[in-house]
Amino acid sequence: MNSAAAPAIRIRELAKAFTLHNQGGVTLPVLRRLSLRVDGGECVVLTDPSGSGKSTLLRAVYGNYKPQAGEILVRHGDRMVDVVSAEPRQILDVRRRSMGYVSQFLRVIPRVPALWVVAEPLRALGVAKSEALERARALLARLRIPERLWDLSPVTFSGGEQQRVNVARGFIAGHPILLLDEPTASLDAASRSIVVQLIREARENGAALLGSFHDTDVRELVSTRMVSLAEADQEAA
């Protein structure tokens, strides 16, 4: 880790709890005072067991969950944006140009073909339609999605196929920050090794990656650093 480099993600004293108002007002604290930094060229892997807040952290960084305290600075062009306090349209701009997210679940839209699902992040960046589709085809082929499926909506795809479409969508734009929430969870060994390659290429291109992988082999292959939330969280037991 190059400590002189500007961080891509800088999290300071982050607190996130869920209050379930319709279930007796129970409050579930998940992150208490978490601090973490990820630089370009790093792939930081969260090693905690499931249920310890890895997804919560990744979703908070993406602006999908709302923390109660702390800040999450992410590099957006030549400045840092605090996702915790940013306006919705700033967060959307950060997601469009700077930060991607890959989960194991694809939210499918009926009637939108897989090819378009994958090409969309490029279209949003203003890339011409023909080039966006060309790059989407290349990535779908690389992820071994059969060509006969490209023009179909992923609604009827298998879980593994949907996940690979999701991976393609997440990687196609070459975002400098990538959040990975179990992107290899339901993949066979061959597909998994392609995703590992994609992650390593992104890292070598200077992207900052933060993710969770339950598969220890994958962790070893992609990580530059392993972090435990329990240790990064100054008030966790």
Partner: peptide, 10 residues
């Protein structure tokens, strides 16, 4: 979560 509308470009 990633398949909502594309952000405005203006």
């Amino acid at each position: 979560m990633t398949s909502g509308p594309q952000p405005p470009t203006s």
